[in-house]
Design a protein around this nucleic acid. Sequence first.
DNA 1: ATAGGTTATGAATCTCGAT
DNA 2: TATCGAGATTCATAACCTA
Lengths: 374, 374
Amino acid sequence: MATKSKPAVVHNLPLNQILDGDCIERMNALPAGSVDLIFADPPYNLQLKGDLHRPDNSKVDAVDDHWDQFSSFAAYDKFTREWLAAAKRLLKPNGAIWVIGSYHNIFRVGSALQDQGYWMLNDVVWRKSNPMPNFRGKRLTNAHETLIWASRDEDSKYTFNYEALKELNDGVQMRSDWVLPICTGHERLKDENGDKAHPTQKPESLLHRVLIATTNPGDVVLDPFFGTGTTGAVAKMLGRDFIGIEREEAYRKVAEERISRVRRFDASALEITGSKRAEPRVPFGQVVERGMLRPGEELYSVGSRYSAKVRADGTLVGHEVKGSIHQVGAAYEGAPSCNGWTYWHFKRDGKMIPIDILRQQIRAEMEADLGRPH
Amino acid sequence: MATKSKPAVVHNLPLNQILDGDCIERMNALPAGSVDLIFADPPYNLQLKGDLHRPDNSKVDAVDDHWDQFSSFAAYDKFTREWLAAAKRLLKPNGAIWVIGSYHNIFRVGSALQDQGYWMLNDVVWRKSNPMPNFRGKRLTNAHETLIWASRDEDSKYTFNYEALKELNDGVQMRSDWVLPICTGHERLKDENGDKAHPTQKPESLLHRVLIATTNPGDVVLDPFFGTGTTGAVAKMLGRDFIGIEREEAYRKVAEERISRVRRFDASALEITGSKRAEPRVPFGQVVERGMLRPGEELYSVGSRYSAKVRADGTLVGHEVKGSIHQVGAAYEGAPSCNGWTYWHFKRDGKMIPIDILRQQIRAEMEADLGRPH
DNA sequence: ATAGGTTATGAATCTCGAT
DNA sequence: TATCGAGATTCATAACCTA
């Protein structure tokens, strides 16, 4: 219960500390209307059945911790409504909340927020640049999580640093979808055995954006599911005060140690994120989906030597070959590889036009598009 | 109520028609368990206060239609639960549903789906490449909408064309975030005055992806909030049957006219990349029976690390193990399972050849026998 | 030292038909 | 309805290892 970097005086709040115990009881013991922002990463209530193995037969290290077990939706809803009510009481009138979740729980959380009179400002999609794939090929890769940003009341004058976020986003408005990598490498905290200290540690980049967007220096940020303390670490860096609540001793210990190592940034030291992006990859299927080429339409190689027909899934069928634009081109040419974008042409008004033109159109739209997060 | 392109016989379903009236009543009048997929774009229950003006003072043409007005969350929930229940009754046991929405309503919809026993498969984010900017700078640009894909029951054997979607995405598995432009240009339907015919017309590219992913040709797709008929138009193109329900006369008229102009793609363009799971099963014993491998011959794992001997009944004997090609491979690797077809190799002229080659030969012969060239 | 190849791993509601 | 066994299935990134 240490990790102090500043005396706790205002409202008698236990600032920059990690409280132990149950988050609902702890929140109810704090003074009402004293917190500027709450960031919450509650249990997701995953309902996993058996083990899952990768195609190489290695076992996936699943989230099977006791704190993620609920007996029913009703039990999960009860828990959710109780902690959200405690959170609302704690917020200042102009305070706001962020909650992160997946499709297992976020719809329950969102409904509860609305029912309790929170005012939804945005739902934000964290698009993971490196998600875990779907190993059995039975669903889409679960490549995102959802955050809800809501103010305490409909008429709250919430904090939103529009200009700062615009700067973070190369001068255009920040969108509701954020591309950020998951937490790995040195940032990922390990326990004594070298295993991950927490199964669901969030990346600091995510908290960085949340806190820059919706708090000011000196604000009090509370995290009722503190875990290994990402919220506290980023809050300290950015000159915000935090209050953490975490009932697992092991997590608290890791978090305290972590936060003690964090240095507060100079006011001038705010991070610049200006990584150049490679040209975005455009799947040929998008050309078909967007109706730029129709299923059934013929494509031709240079000189019309070969032709193949477009299918609805973005593959080609030719003479005894089918596959991607690259594969069919390579097969015809007897070559090990082939750039289908420059190889294939379509006919318009008697003219042969390379399909790469269509890719360029799509890329132009993507460029024109507002917002290039990250 | 026309737009027929095929006689309605199966189950006496009104195929390829647009029904008028209330969607709940209409759905309840159709036979239970008769529909493969439901795509629903229900009212979003937007809570707009006054008019919204752009910085140049032009007025934003908001969704303020009477059908989007609900007096409370309770009223919206009641409506949602009623139409979802009617939809569930209509679905075949292996049927599935898609619902699209925004943060105003999707949390209500998601909770209702879970409460009614639908089984969530993915939430999908439609990331708009060209969203409307946020004019007031008080929030993030609302640049996405959310779709929920759920099967009727937890144990439904739902349709998912994994390989086709992988092709659509340039050979890597499709993710849960889809970047697609909003509906504009020629695709956006206009009324007699040149105004948009429907405030929330969805892009055909979105429906294309949904229908390719989760239906097969000939499936019946129902859309209870048909609007201007994007679902019907794309279903017709892709050789699926549709049933539309729409209570607004004006929308029905636009939709009928629109769908009548759509041409179905020919069958060969609708064939998509298939699944290996659908290939006929070949017992390893057939390889031995046909003399492609002889009893007593040695098989080797990759790198010749392990070997085993073929027996006359199509089992293998190795070092202290015997059983199927899969069992012996799994035992050697200490793995929970093993695909013996790709694990084992035989030697010919000093080269190691995977036994899966032999299975492919047998399958090719089986195809030839059926008189189906290719 | 560097380049290149190999291995490890991440909030996951992850098979299906025959018996 | 439960059990059994065939056999289908992965992407991005960082750490580690080898030449």
